[in-house]
């Protein structure tokens, strides 16, 4: 670099470009540290004794990993039970979100009726309504209907609150799909509902993927409704394990960190496997929504 001044202009420009590239990479590397270092710290201290957290080091080498922290997380933290609940609630909710949003969007974009625009806008209004404003009165309604403290108390609001975005993505996509294939099938006497599931659904695949990804992330990580509508332990979902456990083992930080690590793990694994689809889905969902 010292001799750069004497080099030919072309070479000079090349050195400059390379230096710039290094700077860019270094900046991104720093950002990477900012994004993941707290998580690494968390995992690291989940493997040692709780009192090591009070030492001077940022990270410690777990010479003898204290797996009993994870044992506590799995038993007293009830991670497996909460995980199963989460899986059940998420799959049912996301399935219903996809089904209902496809049906509704077809009704709004392809069927001809006077109030279709009005009803579509009412659903899209849901974008603006904060979940938290409904917590209080849903709490009362659900207990009156005796569905509080059951999976229904989560599935119903999860579906309801994800429908606006799902419908927005679906109607946007349907508008861009030509109707010709449908028309000829209808001419041949195919019923609308059969048409929907045999012809329309496959065409909608990219939009369906986007809806599945965005709503799955929302539902899987949802906390405040689960904390409000469920009063006993039976149906609680994964995010709750940490909250619960923090109370039980308030001074055993390592065990708490183990619970946090374990409950972050399923989404991290899913993300590593599906990261291309997920980032694409999120970007599509946001820009179209």
């Amino acid at each position: 670099m010292t001799s750069a001044g004497y080099d030919s202009p072309l070479k000079n420009a090349k050195t400059k470009a390379r230096a710039l590239r290094y700077i860019q990479i270094i900046l991104c590397a720093l950002m990477t540290v900012g994004c993941v270092f707290p998580l690494i710290w968390l995992i690291d201290f989940s493997l040692v004794k709780a009192n090591e957290l009070f030492g001077k080091n940022f990270l410690v080498w777990p010479k003898e990993p204290h797996w009993e922290n994870y044992y506590l997380a799995l038993t007293d933290g009830k991670v497996p039970q909460y995980l199963l609940n989460s899986v059940f609630v998420s799959f049912v909710s996301v399935g219903l979100i996809v089904l209902l949003s496809v049906m509704m969007s077809y009704g709004f974009t392809r069927m001809k009726w006077r109030l279709s625009k009005v009803f579509l806008n009412i659903v899209l209004l849901g974008f603006m309504i904060p979940i938290h404003a409904t917590l209080l009165s849903n709490f009362i309604t659900f207990s009156r209907l005796h569905i509080q403290d059951s999976p229904m108390a989560l599935i119903i609001p999860y579906v309801a609150f994800n429908l606006p975005q799902a419908t927005f993505i679906m109607t946007g996509f349907m508008d861009s799909v030509p109707k010709e294939i449908e028309e000829s099938a209808l001419m041949d006497g195919c019923s609308i509902l059969r048409l929907l599931f045999t012809i329309v659904f496959p065409v909608l695949k990219p939009a369906v993927m986007t809806v599945i990804i965005t709503s799955f992330i929302n539902v899987w990580n949802e906390f405040i409704m689960a904390a409000t509508y469920l009063t006993s332990d039976r149906f609680r979902t994964l995010p709750f394990s940490i909250y619960n456990f923090a109370g039980m083992y308030s001074s055993n930080y390592s065990a708490q960190f183990a619970v946090m690590t374990l409950s972050a793990l399923p989404s991290l694994i899913a993300y590593v496997i599906l990261n291309k689809h997920i980032t694409k889905g999120i970007a599509a969902g946001a820009v179209k929504g």
Partner: peptide, 16 residues
């Protein structure tokens, strides 16, 4: 990597 914090539950990140 930049998106990693977004896929983790807010409960985990907040408590972290």
């Amino acid at each position: 990597v930049f998106f990693v914090p977004c896929v983790i539950s807010i409960v985990v990140t907040s408590k972290m």
